[in-house]
């Protein structure tokens, strides 16, 4: 059964449609990569899934019920969100940031319980950040900051996690750490992840790690193609959408599994 079904979804600011007639469903333990050029509507689509923006037409069905019927705390018990860029304001302790993941379970005029603290600490443990729990989160690196955001999303205890370019601005190693953490979460907890990304190789990375992965290739407000990475991320599609020459390469590792990768060659003149 699908956790989320999107049916015929259209969203518009004023009169200009951002995306039109989108259909997709996401199953348990699956990663869906939203891939497409800047401004194609990925973030807007994620905001609609979060219930922050309302669709103009169509519907989003969350575990059998229309998302419009959910209150914000109910959505937050189903869908957690890892933002693309988090603007740090006050130097809260890391544990206090992760604890905010329990907001959906905490009544308005109340504070988190000891149990919530235990859940937050456990979430930090999972992403390997326990040691830093009393550090100020303005003093940690961008990569560590992203792990804190993932821990906060984990503390929400949701079946679905939305990520908006979770590796943007990260260095080579931290990018891999975030990717490994996502793989671990999907494998261990059967989490479903919907992730907007600018790197086609992220989708291949998940596939190379034996995770059910699909790519939704988004262009000019619609899904040009949806399917397995090898089927969607082809040099023809790259040429069509991005106007670039690229090549998909595949090679066998010493351990005998196949690694796929897409390599950009050059941009094409119109």
């Amino acid at each position: 059964m699908s956790l989320i079904e999107v049916r015929n979804a259209t969203f518009a600011y004023e009169h200009e449609n951002v995306f039109e007639n989108i259909d997709i469903d996401v199953r348990r333990g699956e990663i869906l990569c939203l891939f497409g050029p800047n401004g194609c509507g990925k973030t807007t689509f994620l905001d609609c899934l979060l219930g922050i923006l309302k669709l103009k037409r169509g519907q989003i069905v969350l575990e059998g019920e229309n998302i419009d019927h959910f209150k914000s705390y109910e959505i937050a018990k189903h869908i957690a969100y890892v933002p693309q860029r988090h603007e740090r304001t006050f130097p809260y302790k890391i544990i206090d940031i992760v604890l905010m993941g329990r907001a959906a379970y905490t009544p308005t005029f109340s504070t988190p319980s000891m149990e919530d603290v235990a859940i937050a600490e456990n979430a930090l443990e999972i992403v390997g950040m326990s040691k830093l729990k009393d550090r100020r989160y303005t003093q940690i690196s961008g990569g560590q900051g992203q792990m804190v955001m993932i821990a906060r999303a984990l503390a929400q205890k949701t079946p679905i996690m939305l990520m908006d370019e979770p590796t943007a601005h990260l260095d080579f190693k931290h990018e891999l750490t975030v990717m490994e953490t996502i793989v671990k979460l999907v494998k261990d907890k059967a989490l479903s992840v919907i992730m907007a990304t600018h790197f086609p190789n992220h989708a291949f990375y998940f596939e190379n790690n034996d995770i059910p992965t699909r790519v939704a290739l988004m262009n000019e407000g619609e899904f040009a193609e949806i399917g397995y990475p090898g089927k969607v991320l082809t040099s023809e599609n790259m040429k069509r959408i991005f106007n670039i020459n690229s090549e998909v390469i595949s090679h066998l590792t010493t351990r005998g599994n196949e690694l796929k990768h897409i390599i950009p060659i050059n941009t094409l003149k119109k």
């Binding site: 905001d47 979060l50 219930g51 922050i52 209150k71 914000s72 705390y73 109910e74 959505i75 937050a76 018990k77 869908i79 957690a80 969100y81 933002p83 988090h86 603007e87 304001t89 006050f90 809260y92 206090d96 905010m100 993941g101 907001a103 959906a104 379970y105 905490t106 308005t108 005029f109 109340s110 504070t111 988190p112 906060r152 929400q156």
Partner: peptide, 21 residues
């Protein structure tokens, strides 16, 4: 309501995604 001020200081969008009205 003091704890919700923490969550609200994350900004409108994040606070909503965390489940705050």
């Amino acid at each position: 309501i003091r704890w919700q001020v923490n969550v609200l200081s994350m900004g409108e969008k994040e606070a909503r995604s965390l489940g705050i009205n």
